[in-house]
């Protein structure tokens, strides 16, 4: 496998211009929402609102205002995290979701049948159906561009280098330096998803945050969906066994009644007819 590639997003320098969103839509030829008729969220300056099948990049606006002169904006260009241990890839029943030679996670649109298991499996809410293709879609980390040595469209378009693209090991070092720089300035800063020993084996798209992950719409401790499999399957098997016993106890009771009742003594048997 080639070197693992990914994104480091420094949210402190994001200006919310949404150039990354536009570049992504343009390069990947993603359709417009609502037939191109603009819809306003009505409660935020962010009108994209979320990642989905036709928005593979989304600049999230976190508007923390207590009053007109007391508040701050946080901005984060959100995207698929290309998890090292990816829940979507784990549950995909068609094999449409693959790990590429760049250690990124890609959905093959010609294989996906739109069952949507990956949507529920993703702890970040990244994936959704593209209504035009009828398949689940998300960021491919511009796999087609990587194949020919180009950087992804979003990071190329980012005017402030909030989105940085490169080999993950290099990006981690760069991110750590930036955290130290910010902390030296008195700014609270932490990396999210940069630890290869952390949640999901690390994220190949990781972030520098200045508030709790939940504030940015990120889970504190993202987990794989299969964490529940053995326990929930075990309880199901146990309840099936209890139902089986209940059914057999009922049959046995009937048989005992038959034997004890008038004309009893017969009823032996199992068998159940000729079929």
């Amino acid at each position: 496998m080639a070197e693992a590639l990914g994104f480091f997003t420094d949210t402190t320098v994001c200006i919310g211009c949404k150039a990354c969103e536009v570049a992504c839509k343009e390069w990947n030829q993603l359709p417009a929402e609502n037939g191109g008729v603009g819809t306003l969220s009505g409660d935020s300056y962010d009108n994209t609102r979320r990642l989905d099948g036709i928005h593979w990049r989304h600049v999230r606006f976190i508007e923390q205002f207590k009053g007109p002169y007391d508040g701050r904006w946080l901005m984060m260009s959100d995207v698929c995290k290309h998890c090292v241990q990816a829940g979507c890839l784990e549950v995909c029943p068609t094999g449409a979701i693959i790990r590429t030679e760049f250690d990124t996670v890609v959905i093959q649109s010609d294989v996906c049948n739109g069952c949507r298991a990956c949507i529920a499996a993703c702890p970040f809410g990244v994936i959704d159906i593209n209504p035009v293709s009828g398949t689940a879609q998300k960021c491919t980390l511009c796999y087609d561009r990587l194949k020919v040595g180009l950087e992804p469209a979003c990071s190329k378009a980012c005017p402030t280098d909030s989105i940085q693209f490169g080999p993950i090991t290099e990006l981690r070092q760069r991110a750590q330096k930036r955290v130290e720089q910010l902390r030296a300035q008195g700014t609270k800063a932490d990396l999210y998803g940069a630890d290869p020993n952390g949640a999901l084996g690390g994220l190949n798209s990781f972030y520098l945050l200045v508030d709790k992950p939940e504030v940015y719409g990120l889970p504190k401790q993202p987990q794989l969906p299969t964490r529940n499999l053995s326990k929930t399957a075990g309880f199901s098997v146990a309840s099936a066994a209890v139902l089986g016993v209940l059914a057999l106890v009922g049959l046995r009771k009937h048989r005992m009644d038959d034997m004890g009742g008038p004309g009893g003594g017969g009823g032996g048997g199992g068998g159940g007819g000729q079929n």
Partner: peptide, 8 residues
């Protein structure tokens, strides 16, 4: 953390 996922 489940509240941050998307509805299928």
């Amino acid at each position: 953390d489940t509240f941050f996922s998307g509805a299928p």
